[in-house]
Write a protein that binds this DNA or RNA. Structure first.
Length: 283
DNA sequence: CAGGTATCCTGTCCGC
DNA sequence: TGCGGACAGGATACCT
């Protein structure tokens, strides 16, 4: 479900609604949930179900900040504990008074007025959580495993994108190269930059590599300012679906006219993912 | 070893 | 209306 703009929109909404709140308690379940996301290897092995302790779930802490890099989102407590929440394909973080009936994995009780709940809900269970005793250790994991954030223009990995023989789309989806681009924004960036997703990285000119990264930033920034893209089930913590859908000009439009030239767009599979592009506008 | 593919899940949609 | 199959925005274990 979520890519960088959706997760940044969720981060901003949580920043407004839960920073300063004390976490009174947390419960896991009822379903199985795994450790997923950057920093996973740094922790203990994480088998199944109720492995996370109250301490790891930030109980008795006060929410100090929400940090994001790429698609990783972390709740940081005032004593330095951090919990990374990886939303996977279908994960949601909700702030509500009534716990959703289905697919709840972690439910936090927030102290204070109204006794609200923060809920990690994830129907497909591709998501997970990774606890860190100290936020500094979490940042080290992120530095080790993730490329620069996809919104960061100053560290755009232009030359690294030109390395190797894989398809450029596969490289854009590689979180260790640039963090945050997913299947939708990869197609959008390649379409806007006029580059075919099957182009090999080492056949990109420097200008083309710079262009596709710049387009990905431009499109993702626009999406963030509209609260993210709701194609299926993206929701902000208070239930708003976001309104960036009309920024999506390529993804999922196979057979429909290209916004550039009007010819029907081509659909197929690239890097194991469904992919849409224009055979005329993208070379 | 870089790169492709199968796999973890549930929900939804489409054709019969 | 019901049912089977395809497919879904992510990440990774495991092949080649």
């Amino acid at each position: 479900m979520p890519e960088l703009p959706e997760i940044e929109s969720i981060r901003r909404a949580l920043e407004r609604s839960i920073v300063g709140q004390r976490i009174e308690s947390a419960t896991i379940g009822p379903h199985d949930m795994r450790a997923r996301g950057a920093g996973r290897a740094a922790g203990k092995p994480r088998p199944g179900r109720t492995w996370a302790s109250a301490r790891e779930l930030l109980v008795d802490g006060r929410v100090a900040s929400l940090e994001r890099r790429g698609k990783q989102l972390a709740i940081v407590a005032d004593d330095g504990r951090a919990l990374v929440v990886q939303l996977g394909m279908s994960g949601q973080l909700l702030v509500t008074r009534d716990a959703p009936a289905t697919h709840r994995h972690v439910t936090w009780s927030l102290a204070g007025r109204g006794a609200r709940l923060l809920v990690f809900r994830d129907p497909r269970r591709f998501g997970g959580i990774v606890p860190h005793e100290y936020v500094q250790a979490m940042r080290q994991c992120w530095d080790r495993e993730l490329g620069p954030d996809g919104l960061d223009a100053r560290h755009a990995p232009i030359d690294r994108l030109r390395e190797g023989t894989r398809h450029v789309k596969a490289a854009l989806l590689d979180q260790s190269l640039v963090a945050g681009i997913g299947n939708i924004y990869a197609d959008e960036a390649l379409h806007a930059a006029g580059i075919r997703p099957t182009r090999r990285c080492n056949r990109l000119s420097r200008d083309e590599a710079a262009r596709v990264l710049a387009e990905s930033r431009r499109i993702m920034r626009g999406s963030v300012s509209r609260g993210g893209t709701s194609l299926r089930d993206h929701v902000l913590p208070e239930g708003d679906p976001g309104s960036a859908r009309r920024l999506i000009l390529a993804y999922g439009r196979s057979g429909l006219p290209c916004h550039g030239c009007g010819l029907p767009m081509k659909g197929g599979r690239v890097a194991g993912r469904s992919t849409t592009w224009c055979t005329k506008c993208q070379r």
